[in-house]
């Protein structure tokens, strides 16, 4: 067995306001700037270690003296220490690094949020008119696609998959940006023409587990905490209606409860009360809208315009298109003519 290099040689990075030092490269994360001391609330160290989990360990093992362990078969074992400032990773042989990071930025980030008193909402988030707007819903509902469409219009992407929400002020929930990359299926990457900015998982095309992580450029990287303005509940697109309606009381609560990222983990960590309190605060302080939209991709502009108008967000130049980005080349003009024909 080769020994692992456990030097924290990568970073420092910034993730949800935390300074991250790592023994594995995390190219999705933005570099920590020493000028960012405004949010230097904690350091997280990501270390490598061999054989800290035995072969029988599976799933989530909570509240052992060593912290929380999570074993994802075929990928890695992860352990978050009791202080939630150290993550130990035990990669399985030959694991796809992108897949490993996907779990690190998914389940492990959710554990860090729960342990650090944040609420991890399953969704994708963009900055609209200076405020954070989250698109939340079950896997496959189109959260990342809609966030990417808005990002391509010039609205900065704040996070994808785990939206870390700080509810220390119950009246004004705050979104803590993660990193401006989005996880998409290859056909969506092709549609948005993000292929040049994407890294793909090693799983064969067309097989489960094949996805790409795409950077959205050009883009202003937002690292500071942002007030949360709204949450949109997404179902699988259906029908031919585009519109939004407010979910009230119990309906907002039930939706948010269903979209707590790995909510079962939060409960297994014994954090029922924290989770319940956060969901109730969020449902009270932030409007939750049901977003109706059609599955026709060529009507995505209608959805994008509806959301922009609802938040008075027209920061993008008028000649931007959600698929193409800036239209400033002869090639783009040719493309547009083709579309018109």
């Amino acid at each position: 067995m080769t020994s692992l290099n456990n030097t924290l040689q990568y970073g420092p990075y910034v993730l949800c306001g935390w300074r991250v030092e790592s023994a594995i490269p995390l190219p999705e994360l933005m570099a920590w700037s020493e000028a960012q001391e405004w949010n230097a609330e904690g350091i997280i160290r990501i270390e490598l270690q061999e054989s800290f989990l035995d072969d029988t360990a599976a799933g989530l093992c909570a509240n052992s003296e060593d912290g929380v362990s999570l074993r994802v078969k075929g990928v890695a074992g992860f352990r978050v220490n009791p202080g939630a400032d150290r993550v130990i990773v035990q990669p399985e042989a030959g694991v796809d690094p992108l897949l490993l990071r996907g779990h690190l930025f998914g389940s492990v980030l959710a554990i860090l949020c729960y342990r650090r008193g944040l609420f991890p909402l399953h969704g994708s988030c963009v900055l609209l008119n200076g405020e954070a707007v989250v698109f939340s819903g079950a896997s496959g509902a189109g959260k990342s696609t809609l966030a990417t469409a808005l990002a391509r219009r010039g609205h900065p992407l704040l996070c994808d998959d785990v939206c870390a929400i700080d509810l220390s002020n119950p009246r004004q929930p705050i979104l803590r940006p993660a990193f401006p990359r989005v996880k998409l299926l290859p056909d969506a990457i092709d549609c948005f023409q993000l292929g040049a900015a994407a890294t793909y998982s090693q799983a064969a095309q067309g097989m489960k587990g094949h996805f790409g992580m795409a950077a959205i450029q050009p883009m202003e990287a937002i690292q500071h905490p942002v007030p949360l303005a709204a949450i949109y509940a997404l179902d699988t697109p259906a029908g031919d209606k585009v519109g939004r309606s407010l979910l009230r009381g119990k309906n907002a609560f039930v939706f948010l409860e269903s979209q707590a990222h790995r909510g079962w983990m939060g409960r297994n960590l014994g954090l029922h009360n924290q989770l319940f309190g956060h969901i109730a605060m969020l449902a009270s302080a932030v409007p939750v809208y049901r977003l109706d939209r059609t599955c026709a991709l060529d009507r995505m502009d209608e959805v994008v315009c509806l959301v922009e108008a609802a938040h008075n967000a027209f920061a993008c130049p008028p000649d931007w298109n959600y698929v193409r980005g800036p239209r400033n080349s002869r090639e783009d003009a040719h493309y547009d003519r083709q579309q018109l024909n």
């Binding site: 009381g249 119990k250 907002a252 029922h272 009270s284």
Partner: peptide, 14 residues
């Protein structure tokens, strides 16, 4: 535990 959300009191048995 219980919390008000709009005019609903939502209760949960932990």
């Amino acid at each position: 535990i219980a919390a008000w959300v709009d005019s609903n009191l939502i209760m949960m048995h932990a």
